[in-house]
Design a protein around this nucleic acid. Structure first.
Length: 287
DNA sequence: TCCGGCACCTGTACGC
DNA sequence: TGCGTACAGGTGCCGG
């Protein structure tokens, strides 16, 4: 199975869309699985009809959301979910079983296929207000955007009453951080995932933010796929699998700083990996 | 308003 | 071998 698209992979996809589909006009749109457009009030037929003939202007991203602007007021919004990919290639090639939506273009060139094994991803045609698609207006900027304000982030963290990892995963506070990079950022910042947000020192919050930016930036650099031809996958498969992770998925392996075995805890029916020595458990954990 | 918990989905790994 | 179950994950939604 290929990896979950994290922010660096989504950015790679955005760049691929910018290169291969932006500037072209949709001839025909097909929805092959209704769940792919479940967030679109127009439904599969309405979505497909509304996409036909549209000109694709720019590919943009916030956190793990992607959108292609269609004009000043509307955009095609996409989330890759757990397994989504955007594939660009020969329009005559056979349809693979997990293609959920397909777009052909008026120039007759390569088509665009949204494939998604586990169907957590989705597409929808949405209004844009002040440069942001309406359904994601509640999402905070991601830490690599100019719009991200560290002071606002710190102030909001201080008002929270929860654990720091939960806060890192809350897209309304900071977007684009998933389970993997949350654990990695916390390891770099030497903070335990259950540290109560309201008790974090300002220096710890800024350390965490710096670590978050660092892991995302490193991943972006390592995950940058080059697109040599139109017929490559516009996805981010060379993402975190190509890098060494310090905490995530390393239960029992020695911490690279202190050699203590990495610990795995159950967290939100999932996992949290940390170094028991570098990231000591707080006195009053917020599980 | 804030917070925690769960539904959604399917391929893979593992135990009996 | 084959079956059943646990697990992986982000996000929207619901209830307290």
């Amino acid at each position: 199975m290929s990896g979950v698209p994290e922010l660096p992979e989504v950015e790679t996809v955005r760049q691929g869309l910018e290169r291969f589909v932006v500037g072209r006009s949709v001839a025909d749109a097909q929805v092959l699985h209704p769940r792919a457009v479940r967030r679109d009030p127009a439904g599969p037929a309405g979505f497909a009809a509304a996409m036909a003939g549209r000109h694709l202007e720019r590919a943009r991203r916030r956190g793990k959301y992607l959108w292609i602007t269609l004009d000043d007021d509307e955009a095609l919004l996409a989330h890759l979910g757990m397994s989504g990919q955007m594939l660009v290639g020969d329009p005559e090639r056979p349809l693979s079983p997990h293609v959920r939506a397909r777009f052909t273009f008026t120039d007759g060139g390569a088509d665009l296929r949204f494939t998604d094994q586990r169907t957590f991803g989705h597409l929808c045609l949405v209004p844009v207000k002040e440069g942001v698609p309406a359904p994601i207006a509640h999402i905070a900027p991601d830490p690599l955007e100019d719009a991200f304000d560290p002071a606002v982030f710190a102030a909001r963290i201080a008002r929270r009453r929860t654990g720091i990892k939960r806060a890192l995963l809350d897209q309304s506070l900071i977007s684009g951080v998933g389970n993997i990079y949350a654990d990695e950022a916390l390891w770099h910042a030497r903070l335990h995932w259950a540290r109560p947000t309201e008790l974090l020192k300002p220096a710890e919050v800024s350390r965490l933010l710096a670590a978050t930016r660092e892991v995302l930036t490193d991943a972006l650099r390592a995950g940058g796929t080059s697109f040599d031809s139109m017929y490559v996958n516009v996805n981010g498969e060379s993402g975190y699998f190509g890098r060494s992770l310090e905490a995530y998925g390393r239960e029992g392996e020695p911490c690279s700083r202190c050699a203590t075995p990495i610990r795995r805890d159950t967290f939100m029916n999932r996992s949290a990996y940390s170094c028991p020595r570098c990231q000591p458990r707080p006195r009053h954990p917020h599980w």
